[in-house]
Nucleic acid binder design. Structure first.
Length: 332
DNA sequence: TAGGCCATCTGGTCCT
DNA sequence: AGGACCAGATGGCCTA
C-alpha cells in the first residue's frame, strides 16, 4: 500500500511531514511490517534513526527498547553511542521539524528569486516557465550578450547576439527564445496558443542555429517576448537604444498595456534582431495552428494580405491579453 | 513507461 | 548551540 508522507503546498491540502506523520510510531524498520517502506529510505527516516542513536542526552531518561540495535552496536567499533530516549526523540523531532521549516522557507526564497529572474528574461512566459537550470543559463547568456552589445563588440541585430543568447541552452529553450523573438519560420506555431497575440509574416530563420521539428514542435515550451521590455526601453533616455522611434515599438495602431511592473533590462530584441522582410503571400504556413480572428485582423492590417483559414480556429485566445505589437518586428 | 523537473526531508559542515 | 548552506535521496507530477 502506498501512503503519501506529505502533499505539496498549493494543492489545497495540508503539508504533513514524515516526522509528523510517524508520530507515535517509532518502531524499528525490521519490526512493524505495516509501516510503508519509504518511511525508512536512506535519506529519510533511516538516517534520522541513525542520528538519534548518536545524539548526546541525559543518561537517566527512560530508554527505548531497541534489541536489534543493541546487537549491531555491540559489533561496532568506536565510541558507543548513547541510546535513544523518548525525551531525546522529542527534542530531535522538534529540532528536525524546525530545520525542515527553515529549509523549506529558504528554498521558497530561492525559488522566488529565481522567479524574479525569470520575469526579466527576454522570453518571459507565465504559461511556460523556464526550468531552473535553463533560467540560469539564459540569464548568464543574457548578461554576456548585453555586455558585448554595450561594449560595441556585438550588435543586437547580429546573429552572434542571438547565438550568445542561446549558447548552451537546450533545444526547447533555444526554440523558446527564437519563438519569443519572432525568429522562427512559423509564426504562431512558435508559441503556445495561450501566449499567442499576433501573427507575423515569417522572417528569415537564423541559418542553422535554430532547428525546428516539422511541422512545428510536438509540445513546444514557447513563451512570449514581454512588451514591457519594449516600453521600458522607450522610457530610457540617453541609453544605447534611444534612437528607436516610438512607432518602432508601437505601430499599427495596436495599443500597448501600460507598464507598471519592475524595471526590466533595456533590450528590444524583437525590434532589433529581425531583418525587415517582405511578407509572404503564402502566409500562413500549413501548420496546425490557425490564426485567431484577432490575428487575422492584425495580419491584414500589417501586410495587406488576406489570411486563409485552413482549419478550425484555435479558440484559446486569452481575452485579458492585448494583441501583440506585431509591427515591432520590423525596422524602419 | 522512461526521463526531466521539482519539492521536500535529511545529515553533514561551517559560521556566528 | 543554533542557523545557514549544501548535497544526496526520494517520491510525485508531467510529458514525449
Amino acid at each position: 500500500m502506498m501512503i503519501k508522507p506529505y502533499v505539496r503546498q498549493g494543492e489545497g491540502e495540508e503539508v504533513v511531514s514524515p516526522l509528523q506523520w510517524m508520530d507515535g510510531d517509532m518502531s524499528s524498520p525490521d519490526g512493524d511490517t505495516s509501516i510503508p517502506s519509504h518511511r525508512y529510505r536512506a535519506g529519510g527516516v533511516t538516517q534520522q534513526t541513525r542520528e538519534m542513536g548518536s545524539e548526546d542526552a541525559e543518561e537517566d531518561e527512560e530508554e527505548i527498547e531497541e534489541g536489534q540495535e543493541d546487537e549491531n552496536e555491540s559489533k561496532r567499533r568506536g565510541p558507543k553511542k548513547k541510546r535513544m530516549t523518548k525525551a531525546r526523540q522529542e527534542r530531535f523531532r522538534a529540532r528536525r521539524v524546525k530545520a525542515n521549516a527553515r529549509e523549506r522557507s529558504r528554498m521558497h526564497g530561492l525559488n522566488d528569486a529565481l522567479e524574479n529572474l525569470r520575469s526579466i528574461m527576454p522570453c518571459h512566459s507565465k504559461t511556460q516557465k523556464l526550468s531552473k537550470i535553463e533560467t540560469l543559463r539564459l540569464a548568464r547568456n543574457y548578461i554576456c550578450a548585453l555586455s558585448e552589445a554595450l561594449e560595441g563588440g556585438l550588435s543586437t541585430e547580429s546573429r552572434a547576439f542571438m547565438e550568445t543568447l542561446c549558447k548552451g541552452l537546450s533545444q526547447p529553450t533555444t526554440n523558446l527564445v527564437a519563438g519569443c523573438l519572432q525568429l522562427g519560420p512559423t509564426p504562431g506555431a512558435g508559441m503556445r496558443p495561450e501566449d499567442r497575440h499576433g501573427v507575423q509574416p515569417p522572417p528569415a530563420p537564423l541559418g542553422g542555429m535554430v532547428s525546428y521539428s516539422s511541422p512545428g514542435l510536438p509540445s513546444p515550451p514557447y513563451g512570449t517576448f514581454d512588451s514591457a521590455h519594449l516600453l521600458h526601453l522607450r522610457a530610457m533616455k540617453g541609453g544605447p537604444y534611444e534612437n528607436h522611434s516610438p512607432n518602432e515599438y508601437n505601430a499599427g495602431g495596436v495599443g500597448t498595456p501600460p507598464y507598471d511592473g519592475p524595471p526590466t533590462p533595456p533590450l528590444s530584441i524583437s525590434s532589433n534582431l529581425v531583418p525587415k522582410q517582405e511578407p509572404s503571400p503564402h502566409y500562413p504556413p500549413p501548420h496546425h495552428y490557425s490564426p485567431s480572428p484577432v490575428d487575422q485582423v492584425l495580419y491584414q492590417t500589417q501586410t495587406g494580405y488576406d489570411v486563409h483559414l485552413e482549419g478550425p480556429y484555435d479558440s484559446y485566445h486569452p481575452p485579458h491579453m492585448p494583441p501583440r505589437q506585431i509591427t515591432s518586428v520590423y525596422r524602419d
